[in-house]
């Protein structure tokens, strides 16, 4: 591999990490509260509210069932509005975040649902308000599961970030596509793929470790 390619791979790694990190953080900023709402408004939960739950569920399901590649293209006008451009690393963060929000929300909801109803009943019997119950009983109790879910989500976002290469996003995905696929440089293809695999494994192992450490 030429030095040029090696440099490109180095840049690609940094860009991929950037995209994944920023998109993950942004997706959690929106997805975590959304997941909590999905959980809390469901039937029999502390803030049970059928219309709100139905509406949120609908939005999440529709956006989640949209193939990411299609979403990438569909929201180009929005991406341009937010970042001023539709190509490059920064621009990729927008569709990545939007695509990840519903995934994060469902994962959070499922983690919270694992909390034993008995604990919630105990909290209610102490006179805790619904918000208090969520903050001081449900969230702490779900922490290990939330970390596990986060590892899966971040790995998914990393995978999506590679797809962003198709519409001019940066990162390892773009590299693999441009050099490895279009120009038949198999060494580049396999190098980038190997790096991506290692990154996913690293993220998953890190998430498992944090989850295990946090489980009391």
């Amino acid at each position: 591999m030429s030095e040029y390619i090696i440099d490109a791979i180095k840049t690609g790694v940094v860009e991929t990490l950037e995209m994944t990190a920023f998109s993950s953080i942004l997706a959690y900023i929106v997805g975590l509260p959304l997941g909590i709402l999905l959980y809390a408004t469901a039937k029999g939960r502390v803030l049970a509210n059928r219309p709100v739950n139905f509406l949120l569920g609908l939005v999440v399901n529709v956006s989640r069932s949209l193939p990411f590649l299609i979403l990438l293209v569909l929201i180009i006008p929005f991406t341009r509005l937010v970042t001023g451009t539709s190509i490059g690393t920064t621009a990729s963060i927008v569709p990545l975040t939007v695509g990840a929000i519903p995934i994060v929300a469902r994962m959070v909801e499922s983690s919270l649902s694992e909390v034993s109803p008995g604990i919630i009943e105990a909290a209610a019997s102490m006179g805790a308000s619904p918000i208090y119950i969520i903050i001081h009983f449900v969230l702490p109790e779900a922490t290990p599961s939330l970390f596990l879910g986060a590892a899966i989500n971040v790995a998914t976002i990393l995978g999506y970030s590679a797809m962003a290469g198709v519409i001019g996003g940066g990162g390892l995905g773009a590299l693999a596509l441009q050099y490895g696929y279009y120009r038949y440089q198999e060494d580049v293809l396999w190098t980038t793929v190997t790096i991506l695999i290692l990154m996913v494994m690293f993220i998953q192992a890190g998430g498992n470790l944090i989850s295990k450490k946090s489980r009391k």
């Binding site: 008995g118 604990i119 105990a122 006179g127 805790a128 308000s129 702490p140 109790e141 009391k216």
Partner: peptide
């Protein structure tokens, strides 16, 4: 709702499955 929560503070409860928060000391 706010009033019943106040009353519940005077009516403590324990359970068969203890229902402690496992993630808290």
């Amino acid at each position: 709702p706010a009033e019943i929560r106040k009353v519940r503070r005077q009516i403590a409860m324990i359970f068969q499955s203890f229902n402690l928060v496992g993630q808290r000391s």
